[in-house]
Amino acid sequence: MNKAAAVELVEGFSLEMTGKDVPGLREAAPVIPQGTKVNVTFLGNEDLEMRVAAAQAVRELGFVPVPHISARRLASQDQLEEFLGRLQQVGASTHVFAVGGDPAEPEGPYPDALTLIQSGLLQKYGVAEVSIAGYPEGHPDIAADVLWRHLDEKALALAQQGLGTTILTQFAFDTDPVMTWIDQVRARGIDAPIRIGTPGPAGIKRLIGFARRFGVGANAMIVKKYGFSLTNLMGTAGPDRFVSDLSELLARDPAHGPVGLHFYTFGGLLATSEWARDYLAAQA
């Protein structure tokens, strides 16, 4: 294994949490490197106060909050501006993740992340960098050509507004579609940093459930390649093999540009942070 490439991929990882995960973040804080980006989700069962409090806790613990803004969950421009304004008040508006969101029908004037970006409101509240979504294995409800067109349009709109861009992907089990997708992104002239989503250590049943929900491949061959078996659903799995294989493939061609990791923690902030610490220590 190429240990230097593995370290380069894992160092500077980012994490994901929900508004309910603040106690878990406090518990994990001593293990998480200061300055780590921590994304805060925008779920339908959480309210403004919970989201803002979580983003504020991230900052106060010495990390960089990246609050999600779910376009389709916003009922009005006023609701968007209230959220951005509250984030700015607690020093948590510099980095955001603009995403379409789950509702089948938009609850207000923003049907997708592109509309959110084109509103021109982000800079007004101090946003300097916007993460946008990438889908190496596609999206169960959106055609591939639409995903690519929106990625192009979002990257262009952010560049025209002078905003930094990071592409953050849905989690993956298989390095092959990830590498193909990275090549396609770069071939389109998009040179923004990419963070490949991967699950932190979690129960196998839970991983497969999330994979099916998001349309990510979870067939027998792919999960075997990731490092667990469908015949042992009671066990847990970590991303060791996926991360090692991905770093090896990235090291073969520097044209892939800046690529890092984003961990979906499923509430396991401490377990994920300990995994990253121990993985990096093993490469020393």
Rank of each mutant, 00 (worst) to 15 (best):
L261I: 14
G101L: 04
Q34R: 15
G62E: 08
V259E: 04
D152G: 10
T166S: 13
L25Y: 00
T169H: 12
H95N: 14
G235Q: 12
L122S: 09
L261C: 10
V58S: 00
D253M: 12
V178Q: 07
L147I: 15
A128G: 06
A54V: 00
G200R: 05
I142D: 00
G268K: 10
D245H: 11
A202M: 12
A98E: 07
T272I: 03
S131K: 11
W275H: 08
R195S: 09
P30C: 02
V64M: 11
T180D: 15
D78S: 14
L116T: 00
S247D: 03
V22Y: 00
F13H: 08
V52T: 00
V64T: 13
E16T: 13
Q88L: 13
V99H: 02
A251H: 09
V10Q: 11
A155L: 06
R149S: 12
F13W: 05
A187H: 08
I194P: 02
D145M: 11
V66N: 04
P103A: 10
G24E: 04
A104S: 15
A271L: 08
V66F: 01
L121K: 13
S14V: 01
F263V: 03
K225V: 00
W148Y: 14
E60K: 01
A282T: 05
E274H: 10
R277C: 01
G217N: 15
M1E: 07
P254R: 09
E8D: 13
A211G: 06
K3C: 09
E248I: 05
A220R: 13
K3N: 11
S70E: 00
K37T: 14
S93C: 08
R51N: 02
G238V: 00
Q89S: 13
W275D: 07
L280F: 07
K37W: 09
L121S: 12
Q170Y: 02
A218H: 12
G197A: 06
R73S: 12
T165K: 04
E248W: 15
Q161N: 09
G227D: 01
H256R: 10
A284P: 15
D78E: 15
A144C: 08
Q88M: 12
D176G: 11
Q184V: 05
V96Y: 03
S229N: 11
E153G: 09
D78I: 11
K37G: 10
V223R: 02
M221D: 15
A157K: 04
I194G: 03
N39Q: 05
L163V: 08
Q283S: 08
V259F: 04
R26F: 03
A29F: 06
S229I: 09
H68V: 00
G197E: 04
A237D: 05
R59L: 02
L147S: 05
A155P: 06
V127L: 06
Q160D: 11
H139C: 03
L163I: 09
A211M: 05
G217T: 12
H262K: 08
A172C: 15
A144W: 13
R73A: 14
L261K: 03
